[in-house]
Design a protein around this nucleic acid. Structure first.
Length: 765
DNA sequence: AGCATCTGTTTTTTT
DNA sequence: AACAGATGCT
């Protein structure tokens, strides 16, 4: 499913489907629930089923809705249906993520929910900024009500389809949050904007309503198919139920073992809800895995089986055992990165293509060391997700201009660019405009004229000039391509000129990024025309707003680095699973993990393992620095769970037992025998550097990177302690709780932040 | 207005 | 360790 690999294992054609697959494909009418184990040919079933609906049952393509987890998956589905049923039918097929499908429907039914057709989709930072602004207007202190927390509470409400008035204030702070929620929704409406949740909520409410649009929506699709159903939230489910209400031809496909998005409102119990709402649903279980070797399947089962509350099922495979699971203990994350790079080089030498190799980690923070190693080894790689291209300031600026042109009422965008580049529109002027807007309940754009009359002539003329510049671009927009519009923005706003004038390394980089953005716009326009549609600004902005990490990944011949979450739905010949230590994976936040959370980690590990077709290499580090903390790590319980007969390397369960038993090893003890550590001796075994890299640190003096337990720290200092510094003299600790850096107020030089090692205790004055 | 600096803050996972 | 946001300074 990743890259251009055709499905090689299960042959094409309906005849080649196995029994349950065929049952799911040929299921005639009415609700259908498919439990699809990892690698069980789920995508085949969905594509064959759609092709059959189109060909055999003569269902018009525009009456089929297929919801996928990423837009890339939708595109692939389209392509595969085309291959089966002919290309002409699939352009009218409705296929996309919940969000993309709803955005498209909203462009049609915008008036019914009080939006203009050109509404803007607010991303995370837009949302947070808006919450902060609303909270401030309502007079709330942002320390007492941090926008981030308020926003996440608002999201929690919206995921349960609760309007501001219906929200449940459990804590006192929630009353404030509820009020902010109300103001937030009003501000969105004034800005002709929606957030991600609104895309779903608006359409759900419409589809459940008795309005003409509601009945139209309920009759619109004769068949609704939902992939990755286990990660559906309450709103998404209600939406599906409503859209399928008329004909009840709803087919949901999922795997409760792969439910990994509880934290954003997905609820496996939705499957129970489905069975309640559609008691007559046919149930099909796809249990044969075609993707992976038997060893990989066994490993995956060993990890998932202890999970509570699983749908009874039995994943099996007819594949040969294949290579054992390779487990590698390394000293720290740097050595892990070295190991990963070598393994990749070895796989490449064996003829495995770069696209067939993936490196997984639990959190994005782990990617940096890996990236450095890849760069050092000059191996092409791409990071999926993480710090995104579209997060860069200059890219956001240009997009903000484009969004403002499409929808001038979008306050978030106006505020972002009104003084970028600097044009003498300062805080005072902006405050004026905002307070007029707030007083009238309009957007900032609509308040400009009224506000301008209250301003002095200088600020007024600058503000009006900005308004006219945007208005002029807006007039020009329909007549030119998106690319040319973006180009014109850079020219007429002076944005490019400002960067050229600055003439330093940073502005050069920014210009390059902008050139890249322009190039990608051009590329998108070419693609869109190639698909026979006229590229429109609104479509482009929507695509940018709703693209997932995987959607944005190029198809270059590069090794992919990604979080396990991003790997969902993908597969690779070789998977390198890094950071397999307790606390890292399973991830343990500050508070101890609840059992449900641990189960989610378990399912996440299951997803990770089942991505591998041929080979799985898992690594753990004795010492890991993450989020600025260096700590000892123990091998993950998910490694311990693996049966020793399918494992090679030093991952045998009894080794773990020994290591557990002796929490502190004897100084100088080697716990990695080189012969054992080498899963394939060729690349890893015969390296002179191995002595250094695989031996565990011999006591505290071995390296400069020390674990938190044995820091080379000065005295443990607390607030109020009197200290002495060689140069600054006497001082008093102002903050710091035993950490190595403390803040000290000196009599001589004022307050300094300083490493505790340079301090000694002094007698209290 | 704009810069620098400092501070606190944050890091699970994302449409 | 890295970042964003805020504050204070020029």
């Amino acid at each position: 499913m990743h890259g251009a690999d055709p499905p090689t294992r299960a042959p094409a054609g309906t005849a080649a489907l196995n029994d349950p697959q065929r049952a799911a494909v040929e299921h005639e009418a009415g609700p259908l629930l498919v439990f699809a184990g990892a690698g069980s040919g789920k995508t085949r079933v969905i594509t064959h089923r759609i092709a059959r609906l189109l060909e055999h049952h003569r269902v018009p393509p525009y009456r089929v809705l297929a919801v996928t987890f990423t837009n890339k998956a939708a595109a692939e589905m389209r392509a595969r249906v085309s291959a089966l049923a002919g290309p002409e039918v699939t352009s009218d097929l409705w296929a996309g993520t919940f969000h993309a499908v709803c955005a498209r429907l909203l462009r049609r039914y915008h008036a019914e929910v009080g939006l203009e057709r050109s509404f803007t989709i607010y991303d995370d930072s837009d949302q947070r900024a808006l919450v902060a602004r609303v909270a401030k207007t309502l007079g709330y202190d942002d320390r007492q009500h941090p926008p981030k927390q308020v926003l996440s509470w608002i999201h929690a409400q919206k995921r349960e389809a609760r309007a501001p008035g219906e929200a449940e204030p459990i804590l006192p702070a929630h009353a404030a949050a509820a009020e902010i929620y109300g103001g937030y929704q009003r501000a969105l409406a004034a800005a002709n904007a929606v957030d991600f949740d609104d895309l779903l909520l608006h359409v759900m409410r419409l589809a459940e309503s008795e309005s003409p649009a509601g009945s139209e929506l309920r009759a619109r699709f004769s068949h609704v198919l939902v992939d990755e159903f286990q990660d559906t939230n309450a709103v998404q489910y209600r939406l599906v139920r409503a859209l399928a209400a008329r004909e009840r031809n709803v087919c949901v496909v999922g795997d409760d073992d792969q439910s990994i998005y509880r934290w954003r409102g997905a609820d496996v119990r939705i499957i129970l809800g489905f069975r309640r709402d559609f008691p007559d649903a046919a149930v099909v279980k796809l249990e044969q895995n075609y993707r992976s070797t038997a060893n990989v399947v066994r490993a995956a089962l060993a990890v998932i089986e202890p999970a509570r509350e699983r749908e009874p099922k039995r994943l099996w495979t007819a594949s040969p055992p294949g290579d054992p699971i390779c487990i590698r203990g390394v000293r720290d994350e740097r050595e892990e990165a070295t190991m990963v790079v070598r393994q990749v080089a070895e796989e490449r030498a064996r003829g495995v293509g770069p696209r067939d190799i993936a490196v997984f980690y639990r959190t994005h923070a782990q990617s940096r060391v890996l990236e450095e190693a890849f760069r050092g080894a000059r191996i092409p790689y791409q990071v999926i997700g993480g710090h995104r291209f579209f997060d860069r300031a200059e890219v956001k600026d240009l997009l903000a201009y484009l969004r403002l042109i499409a929808n001038p009422r979008s306050d978030a965008d106006l505020l972002r660019v009104v003084n970028v580049p600097t044009r003498g529109i300062g805080d005072k002027t902006i405050d004026r405009v905002l307070s007029v807007a707030a007083a009238r309940g309009t957007s900032a754009w609509d308040a400009i004229d009224a506000a301008a009359s209250e301003l002095g002539s200088g600020p007024r003329s600058r503000l009006v000039a900005f308004r006219d510049a945007v208005a002029e671009l807006r007039r020009a927009a329909p007549g030119i391509t998106v690319h040319d519009l973006a180009e014109r923005v850079l020219e007429t706003t002076g944005y490019r000129a400002a960067l050229v004038k600055a003439d330093d390394a940073e502005s050069d980089a920014r210009l390059e990024n902008l050139a890249e953005l322009l190039g990608s716009i051009q590329e998108w326009e070419d693609e869109t025309r190639g698909a026979g549609r006229e590229p429109e600004l609104a479509d482009y902005l929507e695509r940018v707003a709703l693209a997932s990490a995987v959607d944005l990944a190029g198809d270059e011949g590069a090794v992919s680095l990604m979080t396990v979450h991003a790997a969902k739905g993908l597969e690779f010949r070789v998977v390198l699973l890094t950071g397999m230590e307790e606390e890292v994976f399973p991830y343990r936040g500050l508070d101890g993990a609840a059992p449900e959370e641990l189960d989610e980690e378990r399912r996440l590990a299951y997803v990770a393992i089942t991505r591998a077709r041929e080979r799985l290499v898992a690594s753990f580090a004795t010492l890991r620095t993450l989020f600025g903390r260096t700590r000892w790590g123990e091998p993950s319980r998910f490694l311990e769970a693996l049966p020793s007969e399918i494992v090679r390397g030093e991952g045998l369960a009894r080794d773990f037992g020994q290591r557990r038993a002796s929490s502190r090893r004897a100084p100088g003890e080697r716990w990695v025998e080189p012969e054992e550590a080498a899963c394939s001796a060729s690349a890893w075994g015969d390296d002179p550097a191995r002595e250094v890299t695989t031996a565990r640190p011999t006591g505290a003096a071995a390296r400069s990177a020390e674990p938190a337990e044995a820091p080379a720290a000065g005295p443990r200092l607390r607030r109020g302690d009197a200290v002495r510094h060689a140069r600054f003299g006497r001082g008093v600790v102002e903050s710091g709780d035993g950490a190595s850096i403390v803040s000290v107020r000196f009599a001589t030089v004022g307050t300094k932040r300083i490493d505790a090692r340079f301090l000694e205790r002094a007698a209290p004055s």
